[in-house]
């Protein structure tokens, strides 16, 4: 059974047909990169997995999205519970205007966990996993907004991991960061692979080549090619893919 599976997914923003009949399967404990020019639908597709598109008015989705074989667009599924199982990291670091500790503990607190020992343990574990613990362990009560951009993004990753999801979705997590912070995030993604299934949207093709096992190329709402990353970057089977990764458009 695949960890994530999309079957003939179509998505419409009002009249606009944004995703066209996309089918794809993602195995557990892999890193999958979504690449493609702006507006190709890769972020929109990513957001189908945790139903974040529900927050936008006027969106219609057909087809099936399965996680561990369960259809997440079945009406009786509890969306909030579903989202707890899937972590998400956004393009721009978006820590809450709270202190570092409360940012990481947020996901547990909304689950109703208030036991200090449990929270302490989860905060420390998540910050360690996100390679941020050493930098912040002495001032966990400091405002998260006082951290640098790269630290904020690692904090957001820690926050997503604190609730122990099995999947982490990342929407261009390093696009707003400097090269050093970016490489830290990339190292992190590589390490997290053993515990999580990671899907990452990126504009940076070198990044996709460095960190992902499989790569999917989207263009104008269609999935053009989906294959092992090594194959995609050395020997793509479609001409459009070839053109995009060699920088001829996009």
């Amino acid at each position: 059974m695949y960890k994530l599976e999309a079957r003939s997914v179509n998505l419409y923003y009002g009249e606009k047909h944004a995703l066209k009949n996309i089918s794809m399967a993602i195995e557990a404990n892999t890193v999958t990169a979504f690449i493609g020019p702006s507006g190709c639908g890769k972020s929109t597709f990513l957001r189908c997995f945790n139903r974040m598109n529900d927050l936008i008015d006027n969106v219609k989705i057909t087809g099936d999205i399965l996680i561990d074989g369960r259809n997440v667009y079945k009406s009786k599924i509890d969306v909030d519970e579903h989202r707890k199982k899937i972590g998400m990291v956004f393009q721009k670091p978006n820590p809450f205007p709270k202190n570092i500790y409360e940012n990481v503990a947020y996901g547990l607190r909304i689950k109703g966990v208030n036991n200090k020992a449990v929270l302490d343990e989860a905060v420390e574990r998540s910050l360690k996993q996100a390679a941020l613990w050493e930098e912040v362990k002495d001032d966990l009560k400091k405002s998260a907004l006082s951290l640098s951009g790269g630290q904020q993004q690692r904090l957001c990753i820690a926050r997503a991991m604190a609730v122990e999801p099995s999947v982490i979705l990342m929407d261009e997590p390093a696009s707003a960061l400097d090269p050093i912070s970016t490489s830290k995030i990339e190292d992190l993604i590589y390490e997290l692979k053993s515990k999580y299934t990671i899907v990452i949207v990126t504009h940076n093709m070198q990044q996709a080549a460095r960190i992902s096992d499989k790569t999917a190329f989207f263009y104008l709402g269609e999935l053009i090619e989906y294959n092992q990353t090594a194959t995609m970057f050395t020997n793509p089977s479609k001409e459009q893919t070839q053109n995009y990764i060699t920088g001829r458009f996009g």
Partner: peptide
């Protein structure tokens, strides 16, 4: 209140009221 903060909260599985009371109103 920026949309990104709401998304962060919803992304962690917060309900609408949890998002409003914990993130939107304090901000």
């Amino acid at each position: 209140v920026p949309k990104s903060l709401r998304e962060a909260s919803y992304g962690l599985g917060a309900t609408k009221w949890q998002t409003i009371s914990n993130v939107v109103l304090p901000s």
